[in-house]
Design a protein around this nucleic acid. Structure first.
Lengths: 195, 195
DNA sequence: ACCTGAACACCGTTCAAGT
DNA sequence: ACCTGAACACCGTTCAAGT
């Protein structure tokens, strides 16, 4: 609220502290509560101070989204490409659910950050290992990624009136994997021209 | 800007006019420009006047999203269930792309409106015609819907760095259908227990 | 019932000034 | 380089008052 600081005095704020504060605010009070002003107050600083560490709110969100994918591993070199693809996408799915408030943001922008690019390279590498390259590979990558993000978005904010809420929670976990299997089967089958 | 109206005088505004104005504003200037105040100005009315016709901004967006699905047909009674399912989801996909600015909103809430429910019933009916009922049907519905919305979101705001922009536009149209075919094949195959 | 006037409690961001 | 003070140009929404 009141920084008790006169112009020229430092607060010792770092870019990392700003991001950490944003993550905490997001987890505790949700996306709607993540405002530059609220974040500043939490950090004991004036709102405009944040602009010394972050370009703007958009850049902050973009980085938060990308960071969420940091826990997704790189593909293992020895495993079956299809199993590994499943593992990678499933890990991405879980990573998104770990920061549910960010999922809508993810969709809104598409995440071109370094982590998203790393994930893209991993998927592309596995597809190539399975003989899927070029345009079909880009097709497959796109389908897998948007399926994963899209599904996470629906899990976060369930909207389609299809089941009673009791069943929903138990069903939901397996449903993602099921659809992912269908897609992987289609991708693998497409190699021999069955599309 | 200046309504030239004193308290008590009517502007002749209707709920329909408010929605139409919102749609126009959305199409012309984008989601960011769709504010209650801008909408009011466009309608020649004070901002708070809108609250005589709409509960709040959230309700307005919700209705806009749902209305966008009105062009999706009901399933035809005589066609093959899988073809018809493809037709229905493809029409939904196109309907969303016709109002690209609304797609992020769609994801954010999940659309429980009458049109979304009608679509849900149509899909469920077709699945039943193919012998898919109960929990697997709900699974399939969920996968199809989120795939469709998720894909639309990615088309609207391309983010994944995978191809040069020239190819992208030509590839994009077919990619949705391709993934949809994979999913439908998986759903149909799942009937006989190949999951 | 529909509309205005005025206000409340916010936003993100910029600019000048201090050290 | 990092921070404050002050301000700009906005938001969505509510409440009382007019006809």
């Amino acid at each position: 609220m009141d920084p008790r600081r006169t112009p020229g005095q430092r607060a010792g704020l770092t870019r990392g502290a700003v991001l950490a504060g944003a993550r905490a605010l997001l987890a505790e009070r949700g996306l709607g509560a993540l405002t530059m002003r609220a974040l500043a107050e939490r950090l004991g600083v004036r709102p405009n101070t944040l602009y010394s560490h972050v370009a703007d709110k958009d850049a902050l969100l973009e980085e938060l989204v990308d960071d969420a994918l940091a826990v997704v591993p790189d593909p293992a070199g020895d495993a079956d490409w299809r199993d590994e693809l499943h593992r990678l996408m499933s890990a991405s799915h879980r990573a998104l659910l770990a920061a549910p408030e960010l999922v809508p943001v993810t969709l809104g922008r598409g995440s071109r950050g370094p982590q998203a690019q790393r994930l893209g390279r991993g998927v592309t590498e596995l597809l190539a290992r399975g003989g899927v390259t070029g345009a079909p590979a880009r097709e497959a990558l796109r389908v897998l990624v948007l399926y994963t993000i899209g599904f996470a978005a629906f899990e976060v904010r369930p909207g389609f009136p299809d089941a009673d809420p009791d069943e929903r929670r138990t069903e939901l976990g397996g449903t993602y994997d099921r659809g992912l299997q269908w897609l992987l089967a289609g991708i693998a089958g497409g190699r021999t021209g069955s599309g």
